Simulated assay, not measured.
Amino acid sequence: MVRPARDVFHWKLFSRTTMGPLGIAKKFFLWVDEVGGFLVCPQPTVTLGHLDSREADVPISGDLESRHLTLMREDDLYVLEAHGPVCLNGRPVQRTILPERCVLELGNCVRLQFLRPHPLSASARLEFASGHRTVPSTDGILLMARNIILGPQDTSHVVCPTWKESVTLYWAGDALRCRGSGLLTVDGKAVRGEAMLSLTSHVEGAHWRFHLEPA
């Protein structure tokens, strides 16, 4: 059977090994020039654990259980379920709804700040408040709901202080797209305003650049 053109594109874009149960990528890396690197997790359920764990969506270099903590996005709320010792703002928790900003302590050493920076987006950011990192090393974890905003504002999911405009990555069905102002260069081709991305795309504006990489 001949695949329709749209299905051919998505088959090439996301292989079965990178697909989650919702038909979108399980995770990928976002590398932003002069800002940092982030592990993007679009699935609504994400598990954190130690670096040798096959059960963890986010392996962290620290003294953690193989499945230490699960975060579940339910509508516009995040539910925490602890499988190992976890404190929220200094208090032990087992299962709870996360506030929009809080500090999570996993075990005796790994500290993460949870933040939902944009009032109109359910996406959230986890930043390391200790010296630990994901494996491979990144500066933080983006829990991507509908979109991720990169820009100079404090309400951006990725704050880019030197940028003059914002860029949004968002899902259109199971396709990942990028929207910005003015002329963009995506994988060497000039486009205006909006473009479809792959998990290996390089995207440039007048004064900024980022690229994606499969995780």
Rank of each mutant, 00 (worst) to 15 (best):
H157A: 13
P152M: 05
L142I: 11
T162F: 15
S121W: 10
S198M: 03
C102M: 09
C178I: 12
R116Y: 07
V186S: 01
T200V: 04
E165K: 05
A175T: 10
G182P: 01
S137I: 00
K189Q: 14
R101F: 09
G140T: 11
R101A: 08
G151I: 15
N108I: 06
T138R: 06
A190G: 00
D187H: 05
F128E: 04
K189H: 10
T134N: 07
Q153Y: 08
C109V: 08
T200Q: 02
D139R: 08
G193T: 07
S121N: 11
L199C: 07
S166N: 08
H157W: 13
G131H: 15
V186R: 02
S198R: 06
A145H: 05
L143S: 07
I148L: 15
L199G: 03
C102W: 12
L183P: 00
L120P: 00
C160S: 01
S181L: 15
T134P: 07
C160E: 04
S198N: 00
Y170A: 05
E194D: 10
V135I: 12
A122S: 15
N108G: 11
L115F: 09
F128L: 05
W163A: 01
L183F: 06
G131L: 13
G182S: 03
P161T: 12
W171K: 01
R101H: 12
R111Q: 13
V158E: 08
S123K: 11
G188Q: 10
L126H: 06
G193I: 08
L184V: 05
A172K: 12
V110K: 06
G182H: 01
V159K: 02
A190N: 07
C178Y: 03
W163L: 04
S121Y: 13
G107P: 12
L106F: 07
T185Q: 14
S137N: 00
E194A: 03
H118T: 11
T185K: 12
T155W: 02
R146K: 13
P161D: 10
C102V: 09
L106H: 02
A129V: 14
H157S: 14
E105V: 09
Q153D: 14
L197N: 01
R179N: 00
R125Q: 11
A129D: 01
P117H: 13
A122V: 08
I148K: 09
L169Q: 06
R125S: 13
Q113S: 14
V110H: 06
T168M: 11
H132W: 09
G173S: 02
N108R: 08
V167G: 01
S156H: 08
P152T: 09
S156D: 03
E105L: 13
F114R: 12
N108L: 14
L150M: 13
G140A: 11
G193P: 02
I141A: 04
W171E: 03
I149P: 00
L104T: 06
